[in-house]
Amino acid sequence: MILQTITPTTHDLGQFEVRRALPKKERTMVGPFIFVDEFGPAQLDIGTAMDVRPHPHINLATVTWLFAGEYGGAIDHRDSLGTFSTIRPGQVNLMTAGKGIVHSERSPAEERATGPKLYGMQTWLALPDGREEIDPAFEAVADLPVIEDTCAKSIVIMGQLWGKRAATTTYAETIYAEIVLAPTGSMPIEAEADERAVMLVGGEASLDGTPLGLYELTVLAPGHAMTLSSERGGRIMLLGGEAFTTKRHAWWNFVSSDKDRIRQASEDWKAGRFPKVPGDEKEFIPLPEGRPKTVTD
Rank of each mutant, 00 (worst) to 15 (best):
A140T: 07
D143H: 13
D143S: 14
L144R: 05
P145C: 11
V146P: 02
I147Y: 06
I147K: 11
T150K: 14
A152W: 00
S154A: 15
I155Q: 12
V156W: 02
V156S: 07
V156P: 03
I157S: 02
M158F: 04
M158Q: 03
M158N: 00
G159M: 06
G159K: 05
Q160Y: 03
G163K: 03
K164D: 07
K164Y: 03
A166F: 01
A166M: 05
A166E: 04
A166R: 04
T170E: 09
Y171S: 00
I175G: 08
A177S: 10
E178W: 05
I179Y: 00
I179G: 05
I179A: 09
I179W: 03
I179C: 08
V180H: 11
V180L: 10
A182Y: 04
A182M: 13
P183K: 08
T184K: 15
T184F: 14
S186Y: 15
M187R: 11
I189D: 01
I189L: 14
A191K: 12
A191G: 03
A193I: 07
A193Q: 11
A193R: 09
E195Y: 04
A197V: 09
A197Y: 03
A197C: 12
M199V: 12
L200E: 11
G203I: 12
A205H: 06
A205W: 02
S206R: 15
S206P: 11
G209N: 14
G209R: 15
